[in-house]
């Protein structure tokens, strides 16, 4: 396998994460692979429990027992994160790799001024130690970049609203100009207008710094507005990846199709149809394709053989037997009437 194509800020290869539970090992992430180019924004979506947050945590090596990384590689700017010792890993976080969590605003220290907290992040993770004056100038600039007034520097977290705190956390995440920002549901606790402002902020500062973004979230509207490429996860597997335009206009995997048709919008006044059935057990995932028990197009082969990812459109890859090994691209969502027997994964 070739090592880190030029321009890939993140390369995840065959990532596996498991949790030890009394019922057995839960396979939370099962062989996930994807890459994010420099300056690109990549989204991961799926129902709760699909493994999207676990994937993000594994990239940052934040998986705690009873969870563990059971296999695969994570390369950030060519550095293998999973093999790093503690000290280089600590340096790599913030400087190369920053995290904005859901409710990150609640992770601010309540008795420390906002400016001091950002200064702390810079001095404890940065290479060089800037002077006090230089530090303050830099932080004020950062606060300005996320649309906060300079006086926020001397404010305590409780003096800021939720949206302002969340933006302060984005400022902190950018403080060391990381190559990749991992944002896990960064706006889900916020009001809709504030969400829009925070999303704008993420997009703008990313573009200014040339930072890449991994956006974890279930809000398809937000993903549509923010990312370049989108990956859909189901039961620990990445079932489809493609450009955001293709994923919304021509979703190929039946799960992606159902996911997109169940998105609520202000266009139609009908309740979106829920996807029938429930996600499978991660301790005993079904044989064959993980989605076959809920799939409207399930065929015999789906119950027996796990589908390998295959190209289903320009830059679009889906793990689904409907698309066989057929080089014909552009088959529609409906099951093509053909015998799947004999197809191998």
């Amino acid at each position: 396998m070739e090592n880190g194509r030029h321009g890939d800020v993140l390369r995840v290869e065959g990532l596996q994460v498991r949790y030890r539970t009394p019922a057995g090992e839960a396979q939370a992430v099962r062989g996930v692979s994807f890459t994010i180019g420099r300056g690109a924004r990549f989204g991961l979506v799926g129902e709760s429990g699909c493994g999207k947050s676990t994937t993000a945590n594994a990239i940052l090596r934040l998986i705690k027992p009873p969870g563990y990384i059971a296999g695969g590689r994570v390369l950030v700017d060519g550095v293998d994160v999973l093999g790093l010792r503690d000290e280089p890993l600590r340096k790599l976080r913030w400087s190369k790799l920053a995290l904005v969590m859901q409710g990150a605003m609640n992770s601010l220290n309540p008795v420390m001024r906002v400016g001091e907290q950002i200064a702390d992040a810079i001095t404890s993770h940065g290479e060089a130690r800037p002077s006090a004056g230089e530090l303050e100038r830099r932080i004020t600039r950062l606060l300005g970049a996320v649309g906060l007034p300079a006086r926020a520097y001397r404010m305590f977290p409780h003096e800021l609203s939720g949206g302002m705190k969340q933006r302060a956390c984005i400022a902190m995440a950018m403080a060391l100009e990381p190559a990749l920002i991992v944002a896990d549901e960064p706006t889900s606790a916020l009001d809709v207008v504030v969400q829009r402002v925070v999303a704008q902020t993420l997009r703008e500062v990313g573009e200014r710094l040339g930072a890449s973004l991994l956006l974890i979230g279930h809000d398809m509207g937000l993903q549509a507005q923010l990312v370049h490429r989108l990956g859909v996860m189901y039961a620990g597997e990445l079932v489809e990846v493609g450009t955001v335009e293709a994923m919304f206009a021509r979703p190929k995997h039946p799960y992606t199709q159902l996911l997109i048709s169940s998105v609520p919008s202000l266009k139609e006044r009908t309740l979106p149809k829920p996807i029938p059935g429930l996600p499978p057990s991660l301790v005993n995932p079904p044989a064959g394709c993980v989605f076959h028990p809920r799939c409207p197009h399930a065929m015999d082969i789906c119950r027996a053989v796990a589908p390998a990812p295959r190209e289903v459109g320009p830059g679009q890859v889906a793990a689904c037997h409907l698309y066989g090994d057929d080089p014909r691209i552009g088959a529609t969502g409906a099951a093509p009437a053909r015998d799947a027997a004999g197809q191998t994964a």
Binding site: Q195, A199, Q200, L222, A224, Q225, V244, E245, F248
Partner: peptide
């Protein structure tokens, strides 16, 4: 109404 993100990459904010 405008701020509700539209699940359509072609329709911008």
């Amino acid at each position: 109404v405008e701020s509700v993100p539209i699940p359509d990459p072609a329709a911008g904010w």
